[in-house]
Design a binder for these strands. Sequence first.
DNA 1: AAATAAAGCGGAAACGTTTGCGGTCTCCAG
DNA 2: CTGGAGACCGCAAACGTTTCCGCTTTATTT
Lengths: 337, 337
Amino acid sequence: MKSVTLKDVAKAAGVSYATVSRALSGSHQIGSDTRERIIKLCDEMGYTTNYVARSMVTKRTGLIGLVVPSIDNQFMSEIAYYAEMSARGHGYNIMLCNSGPDLKQEKTVVKLLLSRQVDGILIVPQSPKTYENIRAYTDQVPTVFLSENLRDQPQSYVAVDNSRGTYIGTKYLYDLGHRDILYFGRRHTTTHQFRAEGYIRACQELGLTPRFFNSEFTRSSINNGYQLAKELFAKPVDYSAIFASTDSNALGVLKAADDAHINIPGQLSLIGFDNISSTALPRIELTTMEQPKRDMAVQAVDMLRDKIENGTQGYVHQILMPTLIKRSTCRDLHEPG
Amino acid sequence: MKSVTLKDVAKAAGVSYATVSRALSGSHQIGSDTRERIIKLCDEMGYTTNYVARSMVTKRTGLIGLVVPSIDNQFMSEIAYYAEMSARGHGYNIMLCNSGPDLKQEKTVVKLLLSRQVDGILIVPQSPKTYENIRAYTDQVPTVFLSENLRDQPQSYVAVDNSRGTYIGTKYLYDLGHRDILYFGRRHTTTHQFRAEGYIRACQELGLTPRFFNSEFTRSSINNGYQLAKELFAKPVDYSAIFASTDSNALGVLKAADDAHINIPGQLSLIGFDNISSTALPRIELTTMEQPKRDMAVQAVDMLRDKIENGTQGYVHQILMPTLIKRSTCRDLHEPG
DNA sequence: AAATAAAGCGGAAACGTTTGCGGTCTCCAG
DNA sequence: CTGGAGACCGCAAACGTTTCCGCTTTATTT
């Protein structure tokens, strides 16, 4: 188990261990012949540099803490994938933490990450209260949020333009001939405020009257959406389309509609938001607004790297454009049904 | 950015920093009054112990490397979730690495993890060649595999009993009245060899003739399954049920069946393997064999902890039982259709 | 040919912690 | 009153690097 250290190869090479360090680090304070000799020797002896010891002196760990409410969630696992790939490409490793289910847990893991001396933190907040919850730590280490923030929050983040997403989506529905569009889902958290806002704005421009079916659920999930949609479908369906605040909710609506024998998209059109991978499944084929997860992830680590490596201070907000993914749950009313 | 160290609080408390260390570590080599005074002081000064420095001397990092082919995969992200929760509960943190797409990448990340001085590695192999690929490292650090191994491989692992899974599944189909069951999917990797084996064994016991529709795909995905199933459905459907080697494949079959207007389960029954979360979706409701991901993950970290903390040497193989999840894709032929 | 510069390398400190060893002090028993 | 046993705490080494500083050697310039 005892691994070979700098000293070992230094002794074997007959040089000081400072020299070995320089040979490996690509410093030009060393002769090219000795460098090659040493590198070859390191290879033979199976030397691998000890990051812990290096971190000790450089005061940089090359570690990025990734905290997500729960990694077994399609949105977050996709983000995690791209973030890890990108981070590793730049010499960083990812320390993964689930912050769910409550704020206490979230605070705990952030504190833990600080103890671990991570160079930066990438966090998708579990609730709008997250900012306040961990504010004590966000000024001790570079942090970027993956989610739209409250306006004027002193934090950096990258997010999709939620408001624009719902705007584009309802306009699409309008162009398909829909005039009675119901917005379904949460409204009280930041992200959902923006989404509702875009819907309202589109309605105003298009001369439609906004209609809501709200939930007080703290978390959007298929099952929550299903329960809520069952309530909804107990009443008469006097609208031709539903804009669900998230894909999870939309999936719940789909299930409830099937139960109630409401044909989608025959009788009712449905559009979601996020483009989680399940939406592309056979028999689902949900039309939705896509969050560019890959771009979000790589831009977030770029932003974080900039803070870490260049010490960039201020707060930067990166807003990405959502795109409409047309699939099979929206009917064009101009075509015969 | 300069954080407060042991020395700082030692100076403030007027004691040596060894004493502060002892106060925090709960050693009994210290007076209870001084301990409390110091702990209080640490709190006030906002001291957090530096894990990097600690690791330096204890030669333990409390880090577990988790390497998965790609985290944006439902099976792996669920495993990751439970593994992280369990590990953190025992004082470990997870360093996440995607090993895809090739063996070279996999080897690279494992080597990286060693440099990072992780205490142990949890790995879901990307192919049967993984064992050979990283053998040089697995004896340098405790490692447990999450997947069924080649028999007699000198490695520890936890896995589901794949053979038993397909056995149970085809027996279920038999009990439903099915006599012509087609096995669909890969056969050449370890896991799939076992799965095919269980199917064959059940057929023999039940007096059925095994039938295969193989693929040479290196990776089972919905789309690969779809392409293969299209070929399959170009020929006459002279069987009443399909056992798909994975849920992903099953989903592809579902899509192709819809395309070909083959009613599932009306004309054709379908069963999958893994119970990935998509299978529970509305309109899908795939009957499948469940891998107990939670148990697999926690048992894997327990096994790893045992190796790390007790220095347990040998190779232990933990085989978990799969369970049948009955949903809506298998028809009971005894009932009128 | 002498002076200066530059290149190549070694010595040693430093990073923040844990822990074995030894020292001091208190307290109680003899 | 003295001896010894604990209890409590300080000293210092050690973990494996990186990097600053300075020394020697070689090359370059005048």
